[in-house]
Amino acid sequence: MVISPSRTTPLALRLEHVSHAFHSDGAIVPVIDNVSLQAAPGEFVALLGPSGCGKSTLLRLIAGLEAPKEGAIYGDDSPVTGPGPDRIIMFQDPTLYPWRRVRGNVALGHDINGRADDEAVTAALKLVDLLDFERAWPHQLSGGMAQRVALARALVNDPRLLLLDEPLGKLDSLTRLTMQTEILRVWREKQFTALMVTHDVEEALLLATRIVVFSPRPARILADIPVSLPERRHRDDPKLLSLRKDILAQLGHREDW
């Protein structure tokens, strides 16, 4: 089998009975309650749920930034014990380092792992169409551009699993539409497994191949819905709209408006 250099072998993800809790002033606050979940290699799974339900915590556990209190997480059948460049998380804020230029920010993963691959950095910058801005400082970028730099910074590591923690949450609605297309294009091109936290039902339906709906905190899985829509989706597609109605109902919004 020939693997093109721009593609990676996507990761198969498996969560088994994962529970997590925070300690807060001596009290234990459960945030994730017995979540079991699988994502096949190359799948785009949207994690949908009300704000503050614990979806972001779930991504942190999968990224290995924190260890779950109970249960286990497997990537390709080997347990996740800590962070690694094959599972990259992209946050709601771009969190670019202000002391690095755009190019330096994109090269962060290489600096950490002692690689020097200028071509890969250039390719990632090209992929998000920001090569002209490689010498710019982060404070000179707009919100959408900064988030695209963050996307390039994630992609330069050739992640096998990309964890998207509401990366479009703070963008204005037009930039958001552009970025949705951007993410979809990159996912098709690079073929990694993607897990995206969002509370925007429409966004989930436009991007994901599967939608997992969570309850309010502590997060439990309420529904696991495959999205069998064509690759080119339109937000006015009646099938999409009826799915949207179903999911909103799952989330407790039966009055559709």
Partner: peptide, 27 residues
């Protein structure tokens, strides 16, 4: 220092040394 700066580096596998010299001190 914004803790998110550490998270960004840690998700790519950064160890304490990198976090000190390339994140904490520059910030």
């Amino acid at each position: 220092v914004d803790p998110a700066y550490y998270d960004v580096a840690r998700t790519m596998g950064a160890k304490q040394r990198f976090l000190l010299f390339h994140v904490a001190l520059p910030a």
